[in-house]
Design a binder for these strands. Structure first.
Lengths: 252, 252
DNA sequence: GACCCACAAGGTGCATGCAATTGAGGCGCA
DNA sequence: TGCGCCTCAATTGCATGCACCTTGTGGGTC
């Protein structure tokens, strides 16, 4: 596959981008649970920008389906229905099958190393919080998508993966991710081997099992103070990109 | 398939939504060619709103990949590369296979009627402008997606279909759509018959042939005055939604 | 004639202000 | 006590203003 130009994020300015990334992360780490309120003022205050910018960021996230905007009402973190969650997983399966189909047998050595490093990180984080495990697992898939060098595919996979994460907050029992990690390793192996059919079916069953383990029963809502929750996300630390490169798991 | 609540467009206010719809339509009808400039001022003036709103609309369209935002520069209609166009079609194929898989054998009579009516409309428009033919062909696919009642799927199919439209402006020779119309009829027939495998393969080859007919060679750019181009789109005329929901679907 | 620089104009980046809407608490009344 | 209305604080909807960036252009120099 011929190398292609890297993806350019379609972010308007970048203050907006900073806020979006922070909120996305807060959401997938379940610091912001579905239904959590996101007033423009508080957001602006927390990130040191005006409401205009916060509002714009909320607009972007709404376009991605992570946030719900209701006219004249405070925006909230999206609360997808069970059926929407199932739909998201169905779409995700198709998209990620496409990803591995394009990638099978075409990974460079350094890419393989990067993937392995990421899974190692997942392994190391296994004892940590569920939130981090879930984030890392998701980022593995986004990392894969990135390697296709198809900006559109990256965007869709990321979006739908985030949405799926969101549903985990709602419908999943406490995460047990060990098997998932092994499945990640199996996928890498099949990719390296270049067995297109095999890797597609691996990805399919992997996501399918994640979905069925996840979509079992509703979980209780929780609430804390928005400003507190966002504190650790306010200054965009280490990981400028959603998927940070391997090695070190810990956030500074 | 159990009825589900209808999709709610994630549009913030609705002035923004009006502008988005108008611009989307102008773009897919190729009134706004790739690379066309979209200054916030002119947009605001044309639609009778402030720059703030125009800006917000541009942000949404950028998130959909129809518009490119460059910092401190005038926004332009996106100009996807040939490779991106190919990627978009690949994704589209997978998504629409999913659509027809979900729909096979599950259409109501009125839905079938609606589909047939739409294809008839395509037939009638065959002598008209290419722009209208292309729009109708695209809307057929979006109509199908709508019938899945999966908001997420609708959104992704719509988005990627619009993007594909956009690439037609760039890389396609003048449209010859008769065969496409027949293919649409064949898809409907297979859906009614409920032959899942058949309809998936039909959809696959349909889109594949559209793609290969489309992605042949670059076409010359064209330019006119933005304000003139947008005039017919400024007042949101007949079709408020791009594709109106089928009678039966509407919830509550 | 070609190149370079400085300046002006057009356009975006962002904050702020004001109007409009909503939700909630308090009060009266049955 | 319970229900409904009313008022007010909180919050969004949107326009406008100012600062800054980018680009095109004209004059000066070699």
């Amino acid at each position: 596959m011929a190398p292609r130009p890297a993806s350019k994020t379609a972010v308007p300015s970048d203050k907006v981008g900073v806020i979006c990334r922070a909120l996305r992360r807060a959401i997938i780490e379940q610091a912001l649970a579905p239904g959590a309120k996101l007033p423009e003022d508080s957001l602006g205050e927390r990130f040191g920008v005006s409401r205009t910018i916060a509002r714009h960021a909320l607009g972007q996230l709404a376009a991605e389906g992570l946030v719900e905007l209701r006219r004249n009402r405070i925006a909230v973190v999206a609360t997808p229905s069970w059926q929407e969650a199932r739909d998201a997983f169905d779409i995700r399966i198709e998209l990620e099958r496409l990803v591995v189909r394009q990638l099978a047998g075409k990974l460079t050595k350094s890419q393989v190393a990067e993937l392995n490093a990421h899974v190692d990180a997942e392994d190391r984080a296994r004892d940590g919080s569920d939130a981090v495990s879930i984030r890392l697992a998701t980022e593995f898939h986004i990392l894969l998508a990135n390697m296709t060098n198809s900006p559109i595919l990256v965007r869709y996979v990321s979006e739908v993966a985030y949405r799926c994460c969101l549903t985990l907050s709602l419908y999943s029992r406490p995460h047990s991710s060990e098997c998932a990690i092994n499945e990640h390793r199996a996928i890498i192996a099949a990719l390296v081997k270049g067995d297109e059919a095999k890797v597609m079916s691996l990805m399919h069953s992997h996501l399918d099992s994640v979905a069925s383990r996840a979509l079992v029963a509703p979980a209780p809502p929780r609430g804390r103070d928005l400003l507190d929750i966002l504190a650790p996300y306010a200054e965009e630390g280490e990981s400028e990109r959603v998927v940070k490169m391997p090695k070190v798991v810990r956030a500074r």
